[in-house]
């Protein structure tokens, strides 16, 4: 397998309806698929295990940032892993995008590749969603000094040396800005890569609302 040294990390909270298919689509294409079940109250953990992922369970719900940090720390103990891919559980990311990002990281010796919805026109987002996301990007750029086009995109490729610098303390949604900040501080070369985010009815129902953006703003300001 060409991507034996890749671990895909999927933080999960109550995604049993779609998780099985998402995981099944990943297993076999990369060396490791690690699910961190963030205290789900449905059968997410069983679904992921059945589909062939390694599943770590949080005894209680802590938030996506905490789940991601657990996944990263576990992945760093796996022998032979060079690249970590963070991947959303709700099926809005494509494996092909993730693998292309890993290829880019290998080819250009990059520490980090961030997925971005806004580098091309493939992703269809509503006006309000765009506004929320662009605001999040702006805030993130202000606080990190980086110039990203998309901030709250769950698809990222992180090489292990960069991943060792990640210590997320923002358990809830603000971790997406925090991870950019910490990866930026490593001074490793990074790139953005255009990805296609699929907004299904399922992901739309769970997605980021304007209220969520307010929460993110507060979490970032009063940390």
């Amino acid at each position: 397998m060409p991507n034996e040294d890749v671990a895909i990390l999927v933080p999960v909270y109550n995604e049993a309806r779609v998780l099985g298919d998402v995981i099944a689509g990943l297993v076999g294409h990369v060396g490791h698929v690690v699910c961190v079940d963030d205290g789900s109250t449905d059968s997410s953990a069983e679904a992921a295990r059945h589909a062939g992922a390694t599943v770590l369970r949080h005894a209680t719900n802590l938030g996506q940032g905490a789940a991601l940090q657990t996944a990263i720390e576990h992945a760093l103990t796996l022998p032979g892993v060079c690249y970590l891919v963070t991947f959303d559980a709700d099926g809005q990311h494509q494996l092909s995008d993730a693998l292309a990002m890993v290829d880019l990281a290998r080819a250009e010796d990059l520490g980090v590749v961030f997925g971005s919805r806004f580098l091309d026109e493939r992703t269809k987002a509503g006006f309000l969603k765009k506004l929320v996301l662009k605001t999040a990007v702006w805030v993130t750029n202000q606080s990190t000094g980086m110039r990203l086009t998309d901030a709250h995109n769950g698809l990222r490729v992180i090489r292990v040396d960069a991943a060792r610098a990640v210590h997320l303390t923002q358990n809830r949604m603000a971790h997406a800005s925090e991870i950019v900040l910490q990866l930026g501080r490593t001074n490793l070369p990074w790139r953005e890569y255009p990805v296609h985010v699929l907004y299904t009815d399922y992901s739309r129902a769970k997605g980021q609302s304007l209220l969520n953006a307010i929460n993110i703003l507060f979490e970032l300001t009063f940390r």
Binding site: V55, T60, E73
Partner: peptide
């Protein structure tokens, strides 16, 4: 307290991961 709960929960999950490995 939140930080301690996070660390505790993470330690448990990571221990589970080691066992599976």
């Amino acid at each position: 307290l939140n930080r301690q709960i996070t660390e505790l929960t993470r330690a448990l999950a990571l221990a589970e991961g080691r066992r599976e490995g």
